[in-house]
Nucleic acid binder design. Structure first.
Lengths: 226, 226
DNA sequence: GCTGGATATATTGCATACAATTTATCAAAT
DNA sequence: ATTTGATAAATTGTATGCAATATATCCAGC
């Protein structure tokens, strides 16, 4: 039961679960037992159930009938599709941000960069991963297209999951500070450079993953001895 | 109460509501009363509620706290964002379809074209609108990227809503049979032509709408007399 | 006739109870 | 030791009941 008596909206529940997933506190594949979540959030299962259908629709959770909800375990193929989608969408985001961003927007982005730098200097790896994802969500927000914003709001948490699954655990934190370079290119209204940096950034993330070595999930047990 | 005793999954409920919206049987802005849906589908409100949160997450329905669920009324700005997103995504879909489509996929597309032609010859306007949307969803399916497929599954019903809102009611059915031209270009693996046709098609749809004349919804009553 | 406010009705929000189903436990058999 | 089957425990799926809130109705007052 929660200490406070404030009502917890199902969106808040979904968001807190999403944050936990982004910070790798909920690993891919783990089961989300309704009763446990209900008592953790101090609400009834009815609300948890709604939050879970919401998260399932977002793609962060998989619902197995009569068996429950599980944090999604994306396959390598899904990971590749995800990055293909991001390579398509994020250049458009950059173009729109350069077109529309006012000085306050740039300020917001720079505040975020500071948070990232802080987390990095503190070595808070979980916070780094979450903030890295949220940087891209913030960019999408500034770009001003609600559909693309929503899409990125789903792809970024999933990217965190994919990193949890396919990245070597001891990879040195995050590559480098490519985010601040992107922001600077945007501030200078250098579209070509900003897009190039963004695409390189995405390629760096994808290349650090081991999408070729098949996970247990990818093995087709039925077909193995066909 | 449903005649059959088959269990109705929440996805089915959501899908049937989506179809009704696509066919303009549920107009934008209409209230969806839980009790009425519950008896229409022969289930309890609990399940309806889950279907509605799902549809809200998809963006087809708006949830007003304590006031209920309403079929979304997209604004002109949202309509423009939607078409901008489709202009970004659908060329990628065409590229992937040309790369991946086998002969069975092409056959499926041609079967769909036949259905469209049939509906058109019968003058079944509602079915035409729904099938026109589903053509694009089918293309997305064939393209093989699950994220883009899901995105188009949300954008197409919304497009139908936007047409219901911003199109003149007596517009002559649908422009022409641009879909079959696109399929032929795909069958010939003519990427440049297929993409060009797709973009023209989207522009035709958007240009037939009256996105400049402000709807009642767009008027800012508070700011009017500022 | 229109406005304002009280009462009644309708509707949503939520928790709970119970049936259906799955998962875990444990003993017997090979 | 491993497997099989029966039983018990845990968990999900669903309907229902009640409180909270919003909407509609009605009637007095202007």
């Amino acid at each position: 039961m929660e200490a406070s008596s404030t009502k917890v909206a199902i969106e808040q529940i979904a968001e807190r679960i999403t944050d936990a997933v982004m910070e790798h506190r909920l690993p891919p594949g783990i089961k989300l037992v309704e009763e446990k979540l209900a008592s953790a959030f101090g609400v009834s299962r009815t609300k948890i159930r709604q939050a879970l259908t919401l998260l399932a629709q977002e793609g962060l959770v998989t619902l197995h009938p009569n068996r429950g909800a599980f944090v999604k375990r994306p396959t390598a193929a899904e990971a590749r599709d995800l990055f293909a989608t991001r390579r398509l969408v994020e250049p458009e985001i950059v173009r729109n941000v350069i077109k529309r961003a006012c000085s306050e927007d740039l300020a917001k982005l720079r505040v975020h960069l500071k948070e990232e730098a802080e987390a990095r200097s503190l070595g808070d790896r979980r916070r780094i991963i979450r903030l890295s994802g949220q940087f891209h969500m913030l960019l999408a927000q500034v770009s001003g297209n609600s559909f693309i914003e929503k899409l990125m709001g789903e792809l970024c948490p999933l990217t965190c999951l994919i990193i949890a699954l396919f990245d070597e655990p001891q990879t040195p934190a995050c590559p480098e500070d490519e985010h601040s370079q992107i922001v600077e290119a945007i501030a200078q209204r250098d579209e070509v450079r900003a897009i190039k940096l963004m695409l390189h950034h995405l390629e760096h993330i994808e290349r650090e993953l081991h999408l070729d070595s098949p996970t247990e999930r990818d093995i087709h047990w039925e077909a193995l001895y066909g």
